[in-house]
Structure formats: structure tokens, C-alpha cells
Design a protein around this nucleic acid. Structure first.
Length: 221
DNA sequence: GCCCAGGTGGGTA
DNA sequence: TACCCACATGGG
């Protein structure tokens, strides 16, 4: 099986995922920061609180007190750290791009990626999520599920670094943001269903008996 | 009560 | 470089 065939099977099973949840590029970026090491259902509560407070806006967020922000986003875990990250990001938009994430996202992918990675609190996955889901740039997003699934398939070692996993996809797929978008979303959907958490609970996985995806069960080793 | 979730940064050897 | 740890909530 190759990468496009895997996508075809996942898409057939789960349907198009319609990612990223978020009404504006700035909200997508906020969600990308808030979802670090936390389930999306927790992030939704924090985003709702920000919307309620009128803070899904770079200038407003940049000017908001960090401690008050931390209280609002508590459901998304690590509130003080993430408040600092959000303000650092919004402040960067203010200083460098007139408060407009749209303006920032018009740059070249490579340059933008370096710019994002230089910010405190933004690592590879968050940077790439912003580039792909807020900016429509053709960069493949790698997360913990991606790593576990590639390992489970025997396609990559478990300890493969981020950039290698990203290159694995980008070198084998057409450079298509729409494909990267839904492919990553499919991998997350599969990760949730397969219980690919560190504990090997896959024995009870409903998809093991599912012919289109049984390959995952076989490759468990 | 216990486990874990769509990471990142900082400290230490 | 390569680990190890802090961060510190909410749902199953």
C-alpha cells in the first residue's frame, strides 16, 4: 500500500473531515497553539471563552493582560504558558504585520516557517498547522498520531524526527494543500479510532475487523 | 480515583 | 546531542 492508497481508504471510511475548525485564519492559529498536547474538546471551551470576550482578534489579544487571559483559557491546559504564547504571537503580528495574520501569511512557505519557529511557544507542528490550515501553504503537518501510524505500518521508525516524517509525505504526494489538509485530519481520525495511545489497547479496536483498514492490525507486530 | 490528550521550552550531563 | 522534566485541565 502506498500513501495515496492509504488516503483513499481513510477518506472512504471517515469521509472528508472539513478541517480546520475555525472561522478565521487568526482563530485557526489560536486553536493551533491551544491544542498543543490537549484534546480538541478542551480547546473548544477556551476558544468559546475568547470569542465571548472579543479576543479572537490580534490587536485585542496583544493588549490583553496575561493573567486574565490565562483564566479564560484554563480548559485548554497549561494556561499561563499558553497565555504567554498567544500574546507573543499576537504581539508579533502587531509589530511585524500590522496586526494582520492574512498579511503575514502572504510570504513564502519557507520564510514564514522560519519566522513562526523563531517565536516563543511555536514549534514545528504548530508552525505547520498555521501555514497549512490558516494560510493554505503546502506543508504536511506531523503529529503524535502520524508518528504512531507510520510506525505501526512499518514505514518509519518510532523515533524518526519531525522533518523526516514530513519529508516522507511531501516527497510522495502531489504538492496539494487540500490533500495535505484532509490527509492529516484523516490520520487524526484514525488515531482516535485505533486507540494508538502509548498503551497497546488496539486489541479491542473496532477497525481491526474492518477489511479496508485491517492492515493496521496486522502490522502491530 | 486513574489515565491520558492533535507540544514546546528549559535544564543538565 | 540526548534525555528528562515542567506545564497543571477535563473527560472517559
Amino acid at each position: 500500500m502506498e500513501l495515496l492508497e492509504l488516503y483513499r481508504r481513510l477518506r472512504e471510511h471517515f469521509g472528508h473531515r472539513h478541517w480546520w475548525p475555525g472561522d478565521t485564519p487568526f482563530e485557526v492559529a489560536v486553536g493551533a497553539i491551544l491544542t498543543q498536547a490537549v484534546a480538541w474538546r478542551n480547546v473548544e471551551q477556551a476558544v468559546a471563552a475568547l470569542r465571548e470576550a472579543g479576543l479572537l482578534d490580534a490587536p485585542a489579544l496583544a493588549a490583553f493582560p496575561e493573567e486574565s487571559l490565562a483564566r479564560l483559557i484554563r480548559p485548554a491546559r497549561y494556561p499561563r504558558q499558553k497565555a504567554r504564547k498567544l500574546i507573543a504571537f499576537a504581539d508579533h503580528l502587531q509589530r511585524r504585520h500590522g496586526g494582520s495574520i492574512e498579511r503575514m501569511l502572504t510570504g513564502s512557505s519557507g520564510e514564514l516557517r522560519r519566522e513562526l519557529l523563531a517565536l516563543w511557544g511555536i514549534g514545528p507542528e504548530t508552525a505547520d498547522s498555521i501555514l497549512l490550515y490558516a494560510g493554505g501553504h503546502p506543508v504536511f503537518v506531523v503529529d503524535a498520531y502520524t508518528r504512531r501510524i507510520l510506525h505501526r505500518l512499518g514505514w518509519q521508525p518510532a523515533e524518526a524526527p519531525y522533518d523526516r516524517l514530513q519529508a516522507f509525505f511531501q516527497e510522495r504526494l502531489p504538492q496539494d494543500p487540500a490533500l495535505y489538509n484532509d490527509y492529516h485530519a484523516q490520520l487524526v481520525a484514525l488515531g482516535h479510532r485505533l486507540c494508538l495511545a502509548r498503551s497497546p489497547r488496539c486489541d479491542g479496536c473496532p477497525l481491526r475487523r474492518d477489511p479496508p483498514l485491517c492492515r493496521f492490525g496486522e502490522a502491530t507486530g
